[in-house]
């Protein structure tokens, strides 16, 4: 099943780091995935999170305001 991984953030350096970590985690899990960056503030807010960078997995926020380790991300994504 295709996982939809959305990185929410207005584009600061932390968002880029989160993206890298998520890519790494998804690769290690070997799952089918699609990464999308959401940079529009109104859209970010509609997810319900208040801090960036955030990660939504299939539309559900799993990470907000911090950059978890690859191991933690693997648990959150899987």
């Amino acid at each position: 099943m295709l996982k939809k991984l959305q990185i929410l953030g207005t584009g600061c350096s932390k968002c880029k780091r989160l993206t890298e970590q998520v890519e790494q985690a998804a690769k290690e899990l070997g799952i089918e995935h699609q990464i999308e960056k959401v940079t529009d503030i109104e859209q970010i807010i509609s997810f319900g999170g208040m801090t960036t960078p955030a990660l939504a997995v299939d539309g559900q926020i799993k990470v907000a305001g911090n950059i978890p380790s690859v191991d933690e991300l693997k648990r959150l994504i899987a």
Binding site: I45, M50, T52, G65
Partner: peptide, 16 residues
């Protein structure tokens, strides 16, 4: 926890 790039979403999240 809060970094200045989150200021806007945080503000809106609070006010709304």
């Amino acid at each position: 926890p809060f970094c200045s790039c989150s200021a806007v979403p945080l503000f809106i999240g609070f006010v709304a």
